[in-house]
Write a protein that binds this DNA or RNA. Structure first.
Lengths: 144, 144
DNA sequence: GGTTGACTTAAAGTGCACTTTAAGATGTAA
DNA sequence: TTACATCTTAAAGTGCACTTTAAGTCAACC
């Protein structure tokens, strides 16, 4: 931890700032996602805008983009504004895939909720109502 | 494909019925998630209620449950109704974890959407407005 | 009756995204 | 100055959820 006020980060400090580990940052760098500067002694240092960049990468990653898709995105970005159509198309495809998954996962949640409610009702009224889960689901129009 | 109408499935037919592959079904069986019957020649066969069971497992899996959590669930299920509290607690924990992830992922989507819109606006009004993405985000109160 | 395709097992391989290890160099604090 | 934390690299290891391979058995169709 250098106590200079010039808003640069060692890899350890930067890792804390973005919520990753130093090895993960080196891994992302090896994959071409980040390119920190080096001080004269060969050590990496990161700057404030790198924080925003990594956080943005993590948002994209969180929508389902793989490391190799992120790498492609980064390569296009480095080429300049003429690759904006490619980047836009990639993000739109990521969004479309995401929305498909999102709908599926909401259905999974519905079934999970139904099962939890079914167990809770079974626990509450212990002695009667032997309705099974499949029948229970049908009462709500929740299929499969 | 046997053409008997007795609603039993070979592993291949069952795989198609539930949208998995035969090797995956054998893998799930090895993990203790399914227990098909065997015909006299040693071959697995599955029945109609196994379809519902696997589909339900896939819903739980889709909410984030790991194979080992599903296995624990299956073990408790085999013990009978006295393990309903444990099963309920597990599902409630799965749901809680799911909801945390769900909120995070919605935030990721918001940033992805903002970026797509930012690119689209940049593509539309080609020559003016050099507003950067960080500034753009702040206009909507979308942080990080 | 022969060929094709589906089944059986056990074990090894795959892909992804890290994580850990090893061995060494350097910076910081007491 | 000594000790300890942090950094460096390259390479090997991990965990999860399958997937593939190999070698063989068996059943149905022509």
């Amino acid at each position: 931890m250098t106590t200079t006020t010039d808003s640069t980060y060692s890899i350890g400090d930067f890792a804390k700032a973005v919520g990753l580990t130093a090895p993960t940052l080196r891994y992302y760098e090896a994959q071409g996602l980040i390119e920190p500067h080096r001080s004269t002694n060969g050590r990496r240092y990161y700057q404030e805008n790198d924080v925003n960049w990594v956080k943005f990468l993590l948002h994209l990653k969180g929508t389902g983009m793989s490391i190799s898709e992120l790498k492609q995105y980064v390569l296009w970005r480095a080429e300049g504004d003429e690759t904006i159509p490619q980047r836009l198309a990639l993000l739109q495809k990521v969004k479309a895939d995401f929305l498909v998954q999102f709908n599926e996962v909401q259905h999974h949640l519905q079934i999970l909720n139904d099962k939890i409610n079914w167990y809770e009702e079974k626990e509450a009224g212990v002695t009667d109502d032997p309705e099974d889960f499949a029948t229970y689901l049908k009462r709500f129009g929740h299929h499969e």
